[in-house]
Design a protein around this nucleic acid. Sequence first.
DNA 1: CTGTTAGCGCGTTCAA
DNA 2: TTGAACGCGCTAACAG
Lengths: 329, 329
Amino acid sequence: MVSIKDVAKHAGVAISTVSKVLNGYPNISEETRRKVSQAIEELNYIPNSIASALSSKQFDRIALLIDPKRQTQAIDQIFMQYLTGALDKAKELNIEVITVFISMLAGQSCAEITRYFLSQSISGVVIYGMSREDKVLQELVQSRQFSCVVIDVPYTNSRTTSVGVDHRKAQYDVAKKTIADDPCRKLLYIAGRKDGYVTDLRLEGIRKLAEEEKLHLVVKHGEFSERTARNITFEYAADADVVVCASDLMAIGAMNALIDMDIFRPVCGFDGITLMGYVGKQMNTVRQDFYAISSRAVEEVKLLMDGGEGKEVIMPHSIVKMYYKDIIV
Amino acid sequence: MVSIKDVAKHAGVAISTVSKVLNGYPNISEETRRKVSQAIEELNYIPNSIASALSSKQFDRIALLIDPKRQTQAIDQIFMQYLTGALDKAKELNIEVITVFISMLAGQSCAEITRYFLSQSISGVVIYGMSREDKVLQELVQSRQFSCVVIDVPYTNSRTTSVGVDHRKAQYDVAKKTIADDPCRKLLYIAGRKDGYVTDLRLEGIRKLAEEEKLHLVVKHGEFSERTARNITFEYAADADVVVCASDLMAIGAMNALIDMDIFRPVCGFDGITLMGYVGKQMNTVRQDFYAISSRAVEEVKLLMDGGEGKEVIMPHSIVKMYYKDIIV
DNA sequence: CTGTTAGCGCGTTCAA
DNA sequence: TTGAACGCGCTAACAG
């Protein structure tokens, strides 16, 4: 391995001079700079980022906390988009990324996780999908030991920024579009888990719509489960004009139930996953740009690491209809 | 930040003694070990892995090269499984992982990528989905600069191990199961891209079956595209008894085409993705355990980094039928 | 069994 | 404008 020392020798200058050229310091003559650059070229020198990090003690490293535990594999798509968004932005900002599945942290206390992160020189964390039950993650965020960005969780503190869409408005919008296409009087709403952060927000959205449109609103909790939504649909959908679901997976469950029941009801989902296109009928969904959200999250965690204050970031959303023909490649 | 020096002082021993305790060296008295451990405890000392890596020059770091470019979002599932398998195993083996989407390397030469990896102290690479067109990746593997594991690519050299299932046998098995259920004389086979590594292997498998069973075999290239498979099905399926596809996505395209054509033909896919369960009819697929494959890949790259020789690893597969009810949660 | 010493590769004073 | 010297936090001989 060729080190900075070799370059210095080859160029006939001191190590520190090479270092300065490398890091673009101003006080270097054109002449020396050229000599050094040439030596670097000739020796094919590659700076050792490990050593650099140790020496400068400047090392931006973040952990991406992803939770595949309460999802079926069908929505891995969302996490892949989260990942690509984060990785792209991280590379742009020259931040190192450690991808961590929350399952890998299972059973560990907040202190242990903190320990692990510190030993890895991680100073920022982006959390995708923290639930109210994740007590350790809550603790982690509240400890303010790390710069945190939480996705879709309405919580901020001095070192924590939240990034997400306006779930209240999004749910309102997507449902409104659905009933605009098919007028309705009675609406079945399949909500998420009772204690979910977004559940209440989305519920507020649908309540507002029901009030405005003077709809008879029936609310059932589908627990974000396809099967539960399916069962709820079997029980209550015949009696409703429209079925609105707080997640795509539940919408798919509802749709399949309706097919089995052999009745038609307009259904809308929420997340905007491709899978929606495969279920045969078109459905409205919120277009959440997971890539953009994640990209923004990394930007925000960087700001925090640079000393910024935690804040709330609302990303825009739009509404789309999913067709099979738009998805097939 | 509390360092090893503080611990040494606090425990009243030398720095190296602390280091030895930390790394579990044998020649340490129980007494000292206890003292040091206590000091570590009291100061809440966390070893700096960066410094450790620099000093020991031992730093197992691998890059996961993932290519979402030629896939629809529908099969992100495969990549998530690859990821979890790799990350879990990496944590077990204490290997650091850098996740890289191949798109992030687009336009870079082999030398530039090599440079980047070296600067990141990456010594091992796992490549998921390398095609014959990826000239730079080919070059990278052939350069032997890094310990490489390629997934589903039948190439090995002194520093390259290949991991994958036996595509020939797998294709044979899944198709055989399909025609066992529904006897057939004429079989439409929708193959992958003409230049794909696995395309030929799978083709061999189906050819062998056709010969054994004396089937009339019609082969068309679906380019691993759902739409192309759909079009091929429209054109040729009416004339066949069974449709065998070299990928799940193509199987889905074929199935949807058959539904539109309003005729029934048994269809089988290959990859075993959950999405198969959503298309309405049951289909046979190869059960590839992506998690296990990826986990094994990381083990293998570790062996290579420790000086092992490249080799070929064949992972087992089984055949399953996909039902919606097995998938819904 | 323990402590001393010499680096790992680099960034950063501070003189010259 | 340049370079010698020191230190980042740790590991690994070697000496005691």
